[in-house]
Amino acid sequence: MIETINLTKKYGSFTALDSLNLKIKKGTVFGFVGHNGAGKSTTFSILATLLSPTSGTAFINGFDVTKDPKQVRKHIGYMPDFFGVYDQFKTVEYLDFYGASYGIPKPEREILIPQLLELVNLSNKKDAYVDVLSRGMKQRLCLARSLIHDPEVLILDEPASGLDPRARIEMREILKELKNMGKTIIISSHILPELAEMCDEIGVITNGKLVASGSVASIQKQLQANKVIHVRVTSDIELAMLFFEDEPKISGLSKHERHDQTLLFSYTGSDDEQVELLKKAILAGLQITSFNEEETDLEDVFLEITKGVDFS
């Protein structure tokens, strides 16, 4: 379980993190989304005991990160957004070093390491030197490293950044597997869709503040109160414009810029009202070939949430 209470980090007059309150239940995959510099890595560094907060506190499995960092370290697997590897180590030696650092006895490490390499699909690279691995492989190796002491909580800072699409998919599959193993995972990304399908909950952070949090669906819903509807007609479009102009709860009526015979408007009515509107339009003689809501993907949601925030 991860909990932060009024977690704040200031660098001089700059507030990197402003009273962050999070509560992540055991076994949850929590996606932390925000633009670069929003405070994600700051939060993660505090959770990983690498940075002390200016005020507030955070708990991992009930241990206070500021008072009991030693215990916290035993319970977390941390993967930083940027990390280096000891180039002259072989893959197996790399993991063995960290295993030893966590006090895992040698015979156990010898059983554990092949299993971890199997999990991250690096079994065929066990005797390769770390510096010849591709970026995706290094990321996976680092993930395996963060799992070596079987932590209950995983803190993964942009684990898929800088990876090609194939490597991303591989990373995602591994994360799914970890989710199935019942790990509590907090994972960050500046790309929302990347996270959506594997997260139970997401939190959006901008300028150090948590601006939205909840399940992916609820956040999407929250923003879809204002939907955009596209209507395509075969009859005269001007007539259609006149019809919709008089209807209530419609705003921003306009013709589609790229598609002929299509108009679009914002609609604030409920689903039932929307059904009635369509019926009425057909009865009025409009020949409608399509009447659909614009797909708002998470990208739009993110842009919507962070709208009006000064990113500079």
């Binding site: 005991t49 370290r73 977390i76 930083p80 940027f82 990390f83 280096g84 000891y86 960290y98 650092s101």
Partner: peptide
């Protein structure tokens, strides 16, 4: 500088 320190510091050593 090689960005290995953070990881080392999160181990219980």
């Amino acid at each position: 500088e090689r960005q290995t320190l953070n990881i080392l510091l999160t181990t219980p050593q």
